[in-house]
Design a protein around this nucleic acid. Structure first.
Length: 711
DNA sequence: GAGTTTGAAACT
DNA sequence: CAGTTTCAAACTC
């Protein structure tokens, strides 16, 4: 309302305006103004935040403001180097939080300008660091231990948060819109709908907010123009830069019950958690908040001038989802299961989105995910498998009935070894676990951390995602291409022929790579090159046929041409940080022209060479990421960092996987698969986790992988 | 559900 | 680093 006056006065000049104001029309319009604040408790800014949505009548500055704030989505995807999160607009517009009495200072948009976004994000970063996602007593929850962020310090529960802290408190309308009104829309990549609300309020209201169902999802505002800023604070963004749209959504089953309700202002009787106690809500949240961080990357052709793209062309429009691969388990076993339970609409949508994504990435026949507007997707392999596999899916679904977080069944390992799925995945064991003598609980946090550290010290790859799964598709021309992925370390199968889930590669739905030491590999997802090169080419198809009907069907994997097996992954590269958006140098992903390196390196193992390759092969501006400090991409301390030998040609055990792109003997130039930064995994041995965003990425457990396609 | 198989992880 | 043992998941019945 406060804004109305100036805006109106601008409509037609003073005299005209006066006349107009006297007119009945004006009164009528004025009365119709939808800008009535729902609650008077909102600050001016909050009220203001509501306005944009309904002020098309006047050519109010707000529209322009919106425009200005709106992420300038580039028509040319090549400009998509920036990975800012965008929608600061969200911060401002959505500061109107129905159930938030205290609007975060950072989001008070009294002076809405580009700075607000920066401010907003800075606050987020700070808040995030202090974010206490859970209480220390949740032995029965599925939390991740925060080894990534504060490995060296035990700062209590506040430090135990999502390993890949992409957290944005979406609340109020924000949440309402994002989660409820149109998740699909959100996922489709409309930046305008990426309503990222102020997480800073969380600091004030703390977990209550979360318990209220706030989707904890801090947007990563990555500024391509601030390499150093990105390095230290990924949230730091330069508001002056045209942001890409990047939203990281943390799946949270505890999605906003109350917020949603309030936002809706409607009946809440149907809300599943309406009657839950705060504790219950907290449980719910904890059980999921820490699970996978699903980074939904929005990017592509979006013109700020163009009308809001309503619905995405299709689900495939979900441009990208980044899931830490270690979170696969969590995704498939927890989140998805939870999805079968009483989760919120938005959550379900998210889950559905995930499923759809998987469909798009694996059953590529149906989709052409990578259009101009889409980026590659990092797909949870486990989720893929579980979803593709009716059997497993059913199994998971069944288990979800009573135990959404069911995971391990350790008996002797105390859940402190990699045998333990939970431990390996970086999450605490939860109630549903069938483990015995479990130490993988918050109460034993120090033990967990120390053990983890030991393991990691022994094997820096210990907690690395087992599979790098890009889900990258090649566009309409490669409908038969399966989700591309490679097992990072490679399997060592002997009897399973890589056709059973004993095989990690197969389990991950990826083909074996040169890193594999498997025998009689018949991996239907693809076989390591040497097999093909060593005279088995003629058998490939046979093997394919054998496996496809058998085990592949079991795995629920769609058939694909054997020719697609090896060169599965199209070239792409990351833009520097795990949070970075994929940077396509061209609107259309080029058709792959060569065999992909069989090994995809993850962040820690990405070599500088890869980076250089990126620079060489991807002239397209990837923003300042080009300058992204190595430590952002590489764990310098890691014995595997830098240009390390990849794998021996004979498949013998070699140094940890890594930089396969650069080392692939088959690399013939041209397109490359370069995973510059797969944030890797919880690294205790490493130094640095400066904040919950894993800004110092040396071991961020959960991270989305930014993969960028080279020119 | 119990027993077997399997291969990764851990250990030596 | 290689061989062995341990372990828990996958699998089979």
């Amino acid at each position: 309302m406060e804004m109305d006056t100036p805006e109106r006065s601008k409509v037609g000049g003073a005299p005209l305006a006066n006349k107009f104001e006297d007119s009945p029309v004006y009164s009528f319009i004025n009365n119709l103004s939808p800008i009535q604040p729902v609650k008077s408790t909102y600050t001016t800014s909050s009220v203001q935040a509501y306005q944009p949505l309904s002020f098309s009548i006047f050519t109010s500055p707000h529209a322009n403001l919106q425009k200005a704030l709106r992420p300038q989505l580039r028509d040319d995807v090549t400009e998509a180097s920036a990975t800012e999160i965008g929608p600061n607009k969200d911060c401002t517009e959505n500061s109107a939080q129905p159930n938030t009495q205290t609007a975060p200072p950072a989001f008070e948009p009294t002076d809405i300008n580009s700075e607000s976004s920066t401010k907003c994000l800075l606050n987020e970063a700070d808040k995030c660091t202090d974010f206490d996602a859970g209480s220390p007593d949740h032995n029965t929850t599925c939390r991740t231990f925060n080894t990534n962020f504060r490995p060296e310090t035990s700062e209590g529960p506040s430090q135990r948060k999502n390993l890949f802290a992409s957290e944005t408190v979406t609340s109020g309308e924000c949440k309402d819109e994002v989660l409820d009104s149109d998740w699909d829309y959100l996922l489709s990549g409309n930046p305008d709908d990426l309503l990222i609300c102020d997480p800073s309020t969380e600091g004030e209201e703390g977990s209550d907010k979360l318990d209220d169902g706030g989707t904890v999802s801090y947007p990563f505002l990555i500024n391509n123009t601030q390499p150093s800023g990105v390095e230290s604070h990924m949230l730091l963004g330069d508001a002056n830069q045209s942001p890409d749209v990047f939203v990281s959504v943390t799946t949270d089953t505890g999605l906003n019950g109350e917020m949603h309700e309030k936002a809706q202002g409607g009946d809440t009787s149907n809300m599943t958690h309406k009657e839950e106690t705060p504790q219950q809500r907290g449980m719910r949240r904890r059980c999921l908040v820490f699970d996978p961080s699903i980074s939904v990357t929005f990017r592509g052709k979006m013109n700020s001038d163009s009308p809001k793209p309503r619905k995405p062309p299709a689900m495939p429009a979900l441009p990208g989802i980044g899931l830490h691969l270690n979170s696969l388990t969590a995704v498939s076993k927890d989140v998805l299961n939870v999805g079968n339970k009483s989760v919120h609409k938005g959550q379900k949508k998210l889950l559905v989105a995930c499923e759809n994504l998987e469909c798009t990435t694996t059953a590529s026949q149906e989709t052409s995910l990578l259009g101009e507007e889409s980026s590659l997707a990092i797909v949870p392999l486990d989720a893929v498998v579980s979803h593709n596999s009716p059997k497993k899916r059913r199994k998971k679904a069944d288990s979800s009935d009573g135990d959404a977080c069911k995971r391990c069944s350790c008996k002797k390992s105390k859940c402190l070894k990699l045998y333990c799925e939970c431990f390996a995945a970086g999450v605490y064991c939860s109630e549903p676990c069938a483990c015995q003598g479990c130490f993988n609980k918050p109460i034993h946090e120090e033990t967990v951390l120390s053990t983890r550290k030991q393991i990691e010290f022994r094997n820096p790859l210990a907690f690395a995602p087992k599979v790098i799964h890009t889900g990258l598709e090649l566009g309409e021309e490669s409908n038969n291409t399966p989700a591309s992925a490679r097992h990072k370390r490679g399997c060592n199968c002997k009897k399973s022929n890589c056709l059973k889930k004993y095989c990690e590669c197969f389990q991950g739905g990826v083909g074996c790579s040169v890193n594999c030491r498997c025998e009689s590999c018949k991996n239907t997802f693809g076989r390591r090159e040497e097999f093909v090169q060593e005279g088995e080419e003629g058998n490939v198809e046979d093997n394919e046929e054998e496996g496809l009907e058998d085990s592949q069907e079991k795995a629920g994997v769609h058939n694909f041409d054997a020719h697609d097996l090896i060169p599965i992954t199209p070239p792409f590269e990351t833009c520097g940080t795990l949070l970075k958006l994929p940077c396509y140098s061209s609107a259309k992903p080029p058709k792959p022209t060569y065999t992909l390196p069989t090994v995809i390196s993850s962040g820690l193992y990405t070599s500088r060479t890869l980076i250089n390759l990126k620079n060489l092969t991807n002239p397209a501006p990837c923003g300042e990421n080009e300058d992204t400090p190595d430590r952002y991409l590489i764990n310098k301390d890691s014995p595997h960092s830098g240009v390390t030998k990849t794998s021996s040609p004979n498949g013998k055990r070699v140094s940890p996987p890594h930089s396969g792109a650069g080392a692939s003997p088959n690399r013939k130039g041209g397109r490359k698969l370069i995973l510059k930064s797969i944030p890797s995994f919880p690294s205790l041995a490493g130094d640095g986790f400066s904040d919950c965003f894993g800004n110092t990425q040396k071991g961020s457990s959960f991270g989305s992988t930014s993969i960028t396609r080279g020119p």
